[in-house]
């Protein structure tokens, strides 16, 4: 088993599949009355959050607690972190506390890689800057597999601000590893340079959402921050939503079986119309529930053994 989960690139197909299979077992066990499992008793998991993300933190916390790990939440607010303590000094403190795993959320890309140099335990990336968010990609893959029964050969469109999206990077890496065909879609200003060479040469690029939709089994809408238009990535929210928003007419262009995903939080009316977000084809609520199972699987596989 791998030691750290810093990037979806840390996962080969076998390991990624093992995580998804383990998550399925965890999900099955989560349905029962006694939710707690003893596997990580005596292990300490630290949630080190430099960015506010209550959803992700709670998801990791629930996952660790269901496996009976001790959880320490070390959030940037009201701690030495906000007083300017360096990541390295914080790491040494966590090391002294005997952290077996550190789940880190940070606004700087690569912070988990840096942290892994300074702690002996496992490092799990819970989102770093505009780099990656591998557990989000795992839960997205899990959701696709449970809805559509497979990942191999699945056609997935990832739509929106791919340039600034850590969710997109991790999903492209993971999904192509698992045999899906990924097309990133958005205005050219928001598609990173050489995305194919950088992430996976199987990645397609399109600027035309309408052309991609009829071919897609999954369409994943990324959050688009309206601030991006101040930086001239696109002219206006209205134009963005006309060209790249998923509305009801566009939903109808999708094949019958296709599903709609969104990593949240959504800008309803911007990248996704409210009717689409709430439609039965949307997996948005499921994604949240699957998050706990996937994170249990990750923590168990990283910490469960020797």
């Amino acid at each position: 088993m791998i030691k750290h989960l810093r990037s979806a690139a840390d996962l080969d197909a076998a390991t990624a599949t093992l995580i998804l299979d383990t998550a399925a077992e965890m999900a099955a066990l989560s349905g029962r009355e006694v939710k707690k499992l003893p596997a990580l008793r005596g292990r300490t998991v630290v949630n080190l959050f430099y960015e506010d993300s209550t959803r992700t933190r709670i998801s990791f916390e629930a996952a660790a607690k269901r496996l009976s790990a001790d959880v320490i939440n070390f959030s940037a607010k009201g701690s030495s972190v906000s007083k300017g303590e360096s990541l390295k000094d914080t790491a040494l403190t966590l090391q002294a506390m005997g952290a077996d795993a550190v789940v880190i959320r940070h606004s700087a890309s690569g912070a988990p890689h840096r942290l892994a140099n300074w702690v002996e335990g496992s490092v799990v990336n819970a989102g770093d800057g505009t780099h990656e968010h591998p557990t989000q990609a795992l839960l997205d893959a899990y959701t696709m597999r449970s809805r559509l029964g497979r990942l191999d050969g699945l056609k997935v469109a990832i739509v929106g601000d791919v340039l600034h999206s850590r969710v997109a990077r991790s999903n492209v890496l993971l999904l192509t590893t698992l045999g899906a065909q990924v097309t990133v879609v958005g205005p050219p200003t928001l598609i990173p340079l050489e995305v194919g060479a950088a992430l996976s040469d199987k990645t397609q690029v399109s600027y035309d959402l309408d052309a991609v939709l009829p071919e897609s089994d999954v369409v994943m809408m990324l959050r688009v921050q309206t601030e991006r238009m101040q930086d001239s990535y696109f002219p206006s929210a209205r134009e963005y939503s006309r060209r790249y928003g998923l509305d009801v007419p566009r939903l109808k262009r999708l094949p019958e079986h296709a599903i709609v995903m969104h990593p949240g939080p959504m800008n309803r009316g911007m990248e996704i119309a409210p009717e689409v977000a709430d439609s039965p084809r949307s997996t948005i609520v499921e994604q949240v529930a699957n998050g706990v199972s996937v994170r249990m699987a990750v923590l168990y596989l990283l910490l469960g053994g020797k």
Binding site: G129, H131, E132, L193, A198
Partner: peptide, 8 residues
């Protein structure tokens, strides 16, 4: 290519 991969 590398900056795209690293998210920098």
């Amino acid at each position: 290519e590398v900056s795209t991969r690293l998210g920098l």
